[in-house]
Simulated assay, not measured.
Amino acid sequence: MRKLLAATGVALLVAALTQMHPAAQDSAAEAVKAADTARFTAQTTNDFGALGRLLGDDLVYTHSSAAVDGKASFIDSMRSGTVKYESIEPREVQVRVYGTTAVVTGAGRFRVTARGQALDNQLRYTDVWVLRDGRWQMVSWQSTRVP
């Protein structure tokens, strides 16, 4: 019985700590949306400093081709010119915030040159952001081509 009461107490405490006032939640969602937009801008302008700040060191970036990159390999592919994000046009972007974690879903047109081949992809995507040291960082990306 004590274990059950202790587990219930911990669950209630965690729930209380992760609850956000609606205004704070809206503010956090706007901050995440701005960070996501800044990341897209950094990708299309090869702003590696901004990408270094916006991407978590533990990033798992799953491309629509099913290739997977970490932070270093993702940035290195752009730095080397292997991949060039020509333009990114997001739409249908929604942000849901759960305490210090946010899930972004959206769609968009991604024009990319990869290994010399021009690609014009319509994608649906999900990315995950976490609040660390007062700033949002993307830690996961998964995209799927729209047929």
Results as ranks from 00 to 15, higher is better:
Thr45Phe: 08
Arg91Ala: 12
Arg91Val: 03
Arg135Glu: 15
Gln19Val: 05
Thr105Leu: 02
Ala15Arg: 09
Gly52Met: 12
Arg96Phe: 00
Thr62Lys: 10
Leu17Pro: 03
Thr101Asn: 07
Trp136Gly: 05
Gly116Asp: 08
Asn121Val: 09
Arg39Asp: 09
His63Ala: 09
Gln94His: 14
Ala34Pro: 09
Glu92Trp: 00
Gln137Ile: 11
Thr62Arg: 15
Glu30Ala: 14
Tyr125Asp: 02
Gln43Glu: 15
Ala7Leu: 15
Gly108Lys: 06
Tyr61Ile: 05
Ala35Trp: 01
Ala72Pro: 03
Leu4Asp: 14
Arg79Pro: 04
Tyr61Pro: 13
Gly52Cys: 10
Asn46Met: 03
Thr62Gln: 05
Arg145Phe: 03
Tyr98His: 06
Glu30Ile: 00
Gln142Ala: 14
Val68Asp: 03
Asp69Glu: 02
Thr41Gly: 07
Asp47Trp: 10
Ala114Pro: 00
Ser80Val: 06
Met1Tyr: 00
Leu12Tyr: 06
Leu131Tyr: 02
Lys71Gly: 08
Leu59Tyr: 01
Gly108Pro: 07
Pro90Phe: 13
His21Glu: 14
Gln25Asn: 08
Ala28Tyr: 11
Gly9Trp: 01
Gly116Cys: 01
Thr41Met: 02
Gly9Ala: 14
Gly116Glu: 02
Asp76Phe: 09
Asn46Ala: 13
Trp136Phe: 10
Ala7Arg: 13
Arg111Asp: 12
Thr62Met: 14
Arg135Asp: 06
Val112Lys: 01
Ser87Leu: 04
Leu131Cys: 00
Val104Asp: 00
Phe74Pro: 09
Val130Lys: 12
Arg91Cys: 09
Pro22Asn: 04
Ala118His: 08
Arg132Ser: 13
Val83Met: 11
Pro22Trp: 06
Ala42Trp: 09
Gln43Phe: 15
Ala29Asn: 07
Arg124Lys: 13
Ala35Asp: 08
Thr100Ile: 02
Pro147Glu: 14
Trp141Asn: 02
Ala102Phe: 02
Gly106Cys: 05
Asp58Val: 05
Ser80Gly: 07
Thr82Cys: 00
Thr101Cys: 08
Ala67Asn: 12
Gln122Asn: 11
Ile88Ser: 06
Thr44Tyr: 08
Asp57Phe: 02
Phe74Arg: 11
Leu4Asn: 08
Phe40Leu: 13
Gln142Thr: 07
Tyr125Leu: 15
Ser143Met: 10
Val103Ile: 14
Val146Ala: 12
Ser77Tyr: 00
Val14Arg: 10
Thr126Gly: 03
Ala34Gln: 13
Tyr98Thr: 08
Asp26Pro: 04
Thr82Arg: 15
Pro22Gly: 06
Ser65Pro: 09
Arg135Ala: 11
Asp120Ile: 03
Arg79Gly: 01
Asp36Met: 04
